[in-house]
Computed example of a mutant assay.
Amino acid sequence: MTSKNKPFIIMMILFLLILVTFFTSLNLGHIRIGPLDVLKTFLGAGTAQDQLVLFDFRLPRMTIALLIGAGLAVSGAILQGVSQNGLADPGILGINAGAGLAVVMFIFFFQGTMTAVGTFSIFIMPLFALIGGIGAAFLIYTLAWKQGVTPVRLILVGIGVNAAFGAGLIIFQLRMNPTDFMQATIWLSGSIWGTNWKFVLSVLPWIIFLIPLAIYKARYLNVLNLGDHVATGLGAAVEKERRTLLFIAVALAGSCVAVGGGISFLGLVSPHLARRLVGAKHQLLLPASALMGALLLSIADMIGRNLLAPSEIPVGLVVSALGAPYFIYLLIKVD
């Protein structure tokens, strides 16, 4: 295996692991469906129960896990590249909380939409999350700016803004009716609660448009990592490209939060693991991060659904349990 082909082979291995996890997860759950029964169901010869479980519950949920995992991972990789901060993550910096606050406000002012799950509300939630994420990002960078943005200042301001938005979330939750309160609480803990194809369609356009756009812009991330003066000398429109990349990262995080809730640490851990495997060149790092994020969230969702079955652990809690120790390690390691 040559060094030139190694990243592509690694990404192929990640893709194969995603397929293995995907088909394994189809078999597991409170209602077990054997591999042959899964195959029969796909061929149209399965029982009515198997068709209901697979096509109406498991497949849309697992598809959403893959999309959200890829989106959050690429968002984290972009934020780490733009800020030159290995601790950057949409959950830690407060972007997820800003998007979540916007969605909870939407739920609060249009109570019943979460329960009724109207088509309009499903597709409008990512737009509210995008607005909330952009507002949070603007506030964080404004407060963190002091003759530039240092990694430590960015993290500290992000944690503070995250806490402030968290307080706002609690205020709105306490004013909700009991049904919407429970829905919002489960959603905020990072539960992939949207188990139908409408939720897949609500997040799919954002992912299939923004991730290829991010990969297309990857060369600018490489240049920005050389420093603003060098990047300007190489002909890059530094501020314009930085704003574009930040918008892509926030839009990815916001659309994922709208469907998957507050899943932290995934955008932190996935790019770091991908960087160890394929290197720091963003043309390779971004697709590898997408695959790594999709794999990790699929595994976390499988664990959350089956560890205490028939009860379910929100996938956000599983990711946090796995990602928090790695964050502490990075926090100790960073200068």
Rank of each mutant, 00 (worst) to 15 (best):
M1T: 02
K4A: 15
K6R: 15
K6I: 10
F8L: 06
F8T: 09
I10F: 15
F15Y: 14
L16I: 13
L16C: 15
I18F: 06
V20H: 10
L28H: 08
G29P: 14
G29W: 14
H30V: 07
I31S: 14
I31C: 13
G34H: 10
D50N: 10
D50P: 04
L52T: 08
L54Y: 05
L67Y: 05
L67A: 05
A70H: 11
A70Q: 08
S75R: 06
S75L: 02
S75M: 03
L79A: 04
V82A: 12
V82I: 10
N85P: 09
G86M: 04
G86D: 14
L87D: 03
A88P: 14
A88S: 12
G91T: 07
I95F: 10
I95A: 11
A97F: 11
G98E: 04
A99W: 10
V104W: 13
F108N: 12
T113N: 01
V117M: 09
T119A: 15
S121P: 10
I122E: 09
F123Q: 12
M125K: 09
P126D: 11
A129I: 05
L130N: 08
I131V: 12
G132I: 03
I134D: 03
A136G: 08
A136E: 03
A136D: 03
A137N: 01
A137S: 02
F138P: 02
L139E: 02
L139F: 01
I140G: 00
T142F: 10
L143E: 03
A144Y: 00
W145A: 08
Q147F: 00
G148T: 04
T150K: 05
I155H: 07
A163E: 02
A163H: 04
A163Q: 05
A164T: 00
A164E: 02
I170A: 13
I170G: 15
F172D: 03
R175I: 03
R175W: 00
R175T: 06
R175H: 10
T179S: 12
M182E: 03
M182I: 05
A184D: 06
W187F: 00
S189N: 11
S189R: 09
S189D: 13
T195I: 14
K198I: 07
K198Y: 09
W206K: 05
I207G: 08
I207P: 08
I207T: 14
L210P: 00
L213D: 01
A214E: 00
R219K: 11
Y220F: 11
L221W: 07
L226M: 07
G235T: 04
E241T: 11
R243S: 12
T244D: 10
L246R: 08
F247H: 02
A249W: 00
A249D: 02
A258D: 01
V259G: 08
G260N: 00
L268R: 11
L277G: 07
G279T: 10
H282P: 04
L284N: 14
A288F: 00
A288Y: 01
S289A: 02
L291K: 06
A294T: 13
A294Y: 15
L296N: 11
L297A: 07
N306T: 13
L308C: 12
L308Y: 13
I313N: 13
I313Y: 14
V318P: 15
S320G: 14
A321Y: 14
L322V: 11
P325A: 07
F327E: 01
L330W: 02
L330R: 09
V334L: 11
